[in-house]
């Protein structure tokens, strides 16, 4: 029959030859190794980041003591005579921006997430999805431009004492930038709460708000928390908005209306300036970058921890 024909077909014998010569087999063995090497690139990237940061930071600490870095209250790297490298002012700057950004983004982001997952009709949801996608896709340089040329002047007409560079305007705009992240991750967390729970609450005569507040929200809480932690980590690492609209005055003061500097915007300031390779200032950006890296890494791992617990619940 036909199968018999095939058994002796020239094609079959050709294939057999190929198998015997190892034509197919060799590729099959090489390819997984090749792919593994590609996968290793991502690990090497992390290793590269960590090693780069550690080595250059180490060079920095040969000149500046770790104690000074952690305890000095001033950051004056550009002073010829009395340079001081205390991370505190940059840390305070980052903290101020992050705080304002969270105060803007968390309430709005959660409100939108709850609206979309619990209240919104299909049409509104379909409209809001691209809106959030576009907001998330707008490059931070654009947000920075918006902060400097629109938000700051607008705030200054309302509060004349506000300086040209301040913490409030970039803080709010960083908040704007992380809203989509909070919305989409929190909405995911809310929509993974089974509907049967919502029905259970509604069938007891709960209003939608009571159902949301007492059942859906607590059930999604760890996912929501993770989304906030991730968003805050993004705010800490945000660079361009702060560089453009926040100024470059490292200060430990808690004043929100005056120019400030964050860890990220210091790195940008040095990079755009003319501090030569090999100077203490050059190495200082690695020390600052390493600090930044540790903070964001800790936040990300915390978020993963929280959301892993969340996944185990259902």
């Amino acid at each position: 029959m036909k199968t018999n024909d095939k058994q002796n077909s020239p094609l079959k014998s050709l294939l057999e030859k190929k198998y015997k010569s190892g034509f197919l087999g060799r590729g099959e063995k090489v390819i997984p190794i090749l792919l593994f090497l590609m996968a290793a690139v991502s690990v090497m990237t992390t290793a590269g980041i960590v090693i780069t940061l550690i080595v250059e930071t180490f060079t920095f600490f040969k000149e500046i003591s770790l104690t000074e870095f952690l305890t000095a209250k001033e950051w004056y790297p550009f002073s010829e005579s009395a340079a001081s490298y205390g991370i505190l002012p940059l840390f305070v700057g980052t903290l101020k921006i992050t705080l304002i950004a969270s105060l803007t983004a968390v309430p709005i982001g959660l409100a939108v997430a709850i609206y979309l997952s619990e209240y919104a009709p299909e049409t509104v949801r379909k409209l809001m999805k691209p809106v959030l996608e576009v907001l998330a896709g707008v490059p931070t340089i654009v947000y920075g431009f918006f902060a400097l040329t629109f938000v700051t002047p607008m705030l200054r007409t309302m509060f004349p004492s506000l300086e040209m560079f301040n913490a409030i305007s970039p803080g709010i705009v960083v908040g704007m930038m992380i809203i989509p992240m909070i919305v989409s991750l929190s909405e995911d967390a809310l929509s993974s709460v089974p509907d049967s729970m919502r029905h259970g609450a509604l069938a007891l005569g709960a209003t939608k708000w009571e159902m949301t507040w007492r059942v859906a929200f607590p059930a999604a809480l760890s996912g929501i928390t993770a989304s906030i932690v991730l968003a805050i980590s993004r705010a800490i690492g945000e660079t361009m908005i702060v560089s453009i609209a926040g100024g470059s005055t490292p200060t430990a003061s808690l004043d929100l209306t005056a120019s400030l500097q964050t860890m990220t915007s210091y790195i940008v300031q040095v990079s755009t300036g003319d501090a030569g390779f090999g100077t203490t200032i050059y190495y200082s950006i690695y020390a600052v970058g390493f600090t930044l890296f540790l903070f964001t890494l800790a936040m990300n791992m915390l978020a993963q921890r929280i959301s892993r617990r969340f996944r185990e619940e259902y």
């Binding site: 089974p194 049967s196 729970m197 029905h199 259970g200 609450a201 069938a203 059942v215 607590p218 059930a219």
Partner: peptide, 9 residues
Amino acid sequence: FQKPNPFPK
């Protein structure tokens, strides 16, 4: 309901 649906409380 068809399937027991206690709240996660």
